[in-house]
Nucleic acid binder design. Structure first.
Lengths: 207, 207, 207, 207
DNA sequence: AATGAATGAGTCTTCATTCAT
DNA sequence: CATGAATGAAGACTCATTCAT
């Protein structure tokens, strides 16, 4: 009897090599500027082997994208059970998000730069993920209201959107585009801005 | 009286035909998925004619991008002379921005979706434009502080960034991604959120 | 009555402008690397005007070639009437040829470098011209025999061919390829070589 | 015994198929009139396959040219070791050269007709080869002087050039242009012409 | 399972030529 | 006559995908 080859793991590891190589390449260049050949080379496999594990370049791109997105989305997965404070949770999210961006500088380019307009399926998936994210945040803010930390007269959906934009556009661009060395202290400032607004105390606001 | 044919503009109009066709196509698909032939057809001219007016497909893309960006950037050109109120100016910006997005739904997709990674020159131009935008907004907020509307203890740069994100990501995504029929009333809500923050009145915040 | 415009000369001069521009360009680059546009520009006329005077680029090339060849071929047009000495005539030809090459360095490149393989008609014309040239030279050598200067036991055709090669390949390459500053003194050496051969005196040769 | 299939050469043979097809085509038409598709078809391979073996059409042309030139240049590789007679060596060269021309009628057209003006690298290589050829011949003639066959008062370089022209232009044109059935007997006549010159015995020359 | 040689569909770009003005 | 804007045929080259080994 022939020795049992652990095909499952062998394959999975080879598949992973290819996937990681693809992610690296897609992060570096446009979809149309990455060639299957160079992915294969980076993965250290033959060109034909890529097609053993992925049906097409497009498929490989989708999986690369989802892989990166998956890493990213964890940040916002909040556990509401026994949530003590919305503000503190938000602070945690900001910190986690910042670290994630710093640690995955390169990987995130894929998420922010590639908008595969013709991959409708993937487009839909992205929208869906964003919607879920917004739902999480809406829940978080509602919880804040219940806890008495957040004012109850605001539009919860908008507040969630602004918090998302705070994370993605504001922090994202500070770190990735402007190369500002953002630290926790600055996150506190940002959260304060978000929490208290820019206007002079609301007390006098009405007058 | 016979209609006057504006011969002068005939040429310019042919160039414009091509440019508009290109914008349409680039909004619809990736740079690499749009063919020059397709643009020529949509513009109603021969393929060679495209090259009479634009030296290459890349050049045509850059001009399409700049064209869209140009339309967009007007929104933020603020005149500080005799600025009466930062808050009212911000309201104006939000309204103008919203209208612009609504009127140019399609055109703006290009700005937000295409990030031509290999067009370094264009990349640099985009960064430069964004920086100018942030400067305008920083100026606006500083003016608000001078006028006593905005609290003086905040980080002006961050406030500017958050206001930009409010416009671009929050409003942009509501209109373009989620197809929400945003009206002026909602802009007020958004501005209020930005102005006063989400927390309970700062007065009580400390207690 | 309208003033009489001297069309004949006007045309001829414009035609010449174009022809000279074409010659210049064809001397500089391959047929396929010269564009009609650049010929028109150099001639200072519109692109369409070229087609007023020449039916096609190919036609224009043929005329350019013939023009250069015509200049060249004069060198060998010998007047046999009252020919005093074949040797002196040959010396004259060498001198004339050398001067021609020096004076028309550039123009001659066309003759030597362009061999329009697909212009059968032109090919035939070239062969015909070469044949005529050889006939002239054969006549010259025969005359030399009649005058008792040239030995009568040689193959007149071959002698003519070698004299042509002496002019074209030997002198041509010395001047045009190797940039040797050939002077009349050296032509004498060459003619001596041709006249007396390289072997030790014929007297001993037979022994 | 089953025929051994030489797998090793299979690859080389595919490259050769393409090279030979290219040579055939380039001999038939100008560089710019030969299409890669046409070469691929003649070679019996796909268009893409050409680019597997040659990086560009230009590269393919260069290799075709060098290939033909390589065949040609062998003729003049002379072994001076124990050279018995310059005259006999020259006779050998003429014979070899003639046979080569006859056997490779077509291949040599490429060498004589195509002067790729824009392939500077190739141009340089050609000049270099010609220079080496002249050096060989200069050496041969000097040897002739040492052996007492050749007169010592001549310009060795010029003599070498004339001998080269004798081979290339005279014999070349007789065979290739004028379709004369040149035989060894005629080569003797030619060599005699070169050796003794056309003039009456040098002895009487001065008188 | 793994490979990479072979393929040809698809694209940008050039440029001779035409023709309306 | 003179022009040059418009054209589209033609060709080099790329690269995702296949398939024989």
């Amino acid at each position: 009897m022939a020795p049992v080859k652990n095909n499952k793991n062998q394959n999975s590891s080879k598949r992973d090599q290819i996937l990681h190589a693809a992610v690296d390449k897609f992060l570096e260049k446009d979809f149309y500027q990455v060639t299957v050949t160079e992915i294969a080379e980076l993965a250290g496999v033959g060109k034909g082997t890529v097609y053993e594990y992925f049906s097409s370049k497009e498929e490989l791109f989708k999986e690369s994208f989802s892989y990166c997105a998956g890493i990213y989305l964890q940040t916002f997965k909040i556990n509401f059970a026994e949530l003590a404070s919305a503000r503190i949770t938000m602070e945690d999210i900001l910190v986690t998000h910042l670290n994630l961006i710093k640690e995955n500088r390169n990987k995130l380019h894929l998420l922010f730069n590639e908008r595969p307009q013709n991959l409708k399926e993937l487009q839909a998936w992205i929208l869906e993920q964003r919607r879920e994210l917004l739902n999480e945040l809406t829940g978080l803010i509602s919880e804040g209201i219940r806890l008495g930390e957040v004012r109850s007269d605001l539009n919860v959906d908008m507040a969630a959107r602004l918090f998302l934009a705070l994370n993605q556009q504001v922090i994202g661009e500070m770190v990735l585009l402007d190369n500002i060395a953002v630290e926790e202290a600055q996150l506190k400032e940002l959260l304060d801005l978000y929490w208290n607004g820019i206007g002079k105390s609301a007390l006098w606001q009405g007058h």
